[in-house]
Design a protein around this nucleic acid. Structure first.
Lengths: 227, 227
DNA sequence: GTCTATAGCTTGATAGAC
DNA sequence: GTCTATCAAGCTATAGAC
């Protein structure tokens, strides 16, 4: 870990990331963070200004790394299959692989970061604005790739399927331990390799089932729920 | 609405539900709640005791109603198809219909409640314990029904697929407005009928794709990611 | 059931010495 | 860059009058 050698600025970011992930923005005090980081409270203001600005710094630090990796994986898949679009499975894999990989093998900092993302993504105030700011530029590239791979599909179908993907993925990061308890230990929410081999086929099948030209051709009226 | 006629106890619950949904447990003060409810702060302690107990009361109030409705829908589907299991689509519909219906047509209180559920489900501390307490007894009945409808499937596949369902569903309740922004207004996160007609086939296709006897028969080794 | 008053503590933020 | 000291504001919770 060699956490000892880090400077105070990084230690504050690490501590903030960890505490925000545990108890959220409001559940975490600057004093919690300072104590966890082993620095004085006033140092936080000195380096980052207000609490909200510290939060933004935490969000930004790893987002850039992730987005670069994910974009590279998408482009690699596109090159492999050019001039055809890649199969859905490979697009979904490019979208999720870097995230699950970092979460599994990146150490505690990455784990905390993803747990924080899960909370933010499901927060009514921040879910829209923050996720949009840090991640949606890349999301558009994936939506373009999916659109190419699902010819003739309806735009709204596509967006909603992305929404389901986002929800399934971020709950996985939340590491709430719920599935562990539910399955009586059979599933381990920290074993993200187990997730990955199921998430990709699950989501791919969903996209293929919903994003069809047939559904796109249906009249504006909704299909009607069962009952 | 006839909110005027409600007694103070209910008004406190309504206000707490709304404020907790907006800013979470720690982001909401008892004074916020009292102000929103139009009552004195001390009344909260009188009726509910500590802040945490108020939170529990909020969670419990609607959980019981929902679970009863969902169980009835599941049993109705099972009766319709007896002695065979119902199709996956009908099981998923029974799982989600009451939730989406209340969220759409139940008024602001229900909407807030579900937004709160989304946050709780993705919270590292409470996601496991709270959701387990209030909802998992019913979840087991749905898992039993799914197991019957997916003969020969692997247990871990089943649990993970349920996890994906839970994530996709709760993000929908969060009503973050992210998909609205992402789709430039094409999708409306408040129109849960739009969700419902896509969620059920999306999730059903995922279950059918992952929970197969073929996958269950694979060796313990994982399938190996792309790359 | 409802309200006033207040105890006792923690919070975010900053001013200023070193 | 770092720390001490401090402030005004807000917090939960309760005791006690009505």
């Amino acid at each position: 870990m060699k956490a000892e050698r880090k400077n105070n600025r990084e230690r504050i970011l690490d501590a903030a990331e960890r505490q925000f992930a545990k108890l959220g923005f409001f559940g975490t005090s600057l004093r919690d963070i300072a104590r966890t980081a082993g620095v004085d409270v006033a140092l936080i203001s000195y380096h980052f200004g207000k609490k909200q600005e510290l939060f933004d710094a935490v969000m930004l630090r790893r987002a850039e790394i992730l987005n670069a990796e994910r974009q590279q994986m998408l482009e690699a898949a596109q090159r492999r299959h050019a001039p055809n679009p890649p199969p859905i499975e490979e697009i979904i894999d490019a979208f999720t692989h870097a995230l699950l990989n970092r979460s599994t093998k990146g150490g505690e900092g990455w784990r905390s970061y993803f747990a924080l993302i899960a909370q933010v993504n499901n927060h009514p105030q921040w879910g829209g604005a923050v996720m949009n700011q840090y991640f949606d530029p890349l999301v558009y590239k994936f939506l373009d790739a999916l659109r190419d791979a699902l010819p003739g599909c309806d735009e709204r179908d596509l967006f909603w399927c992305y929404h389901f993907l986002s929800g399934a993925l971020t709950l996985t990061f939340a590491e709430t331990g719920r599935i562990d308890k539910l399955s009586d230990g059979l599933c381990n929410s920290e074993d993200l390799d187990d997730v990955h081999e199921r998430l990709v086929p699950f989501i791919s099948a969903g996209f293929k089932s919903v994003c069809t030209p047939e559904r796109a051709a249906r009249p504006g009226a909704r299909r009607g729920g069962r009952r």
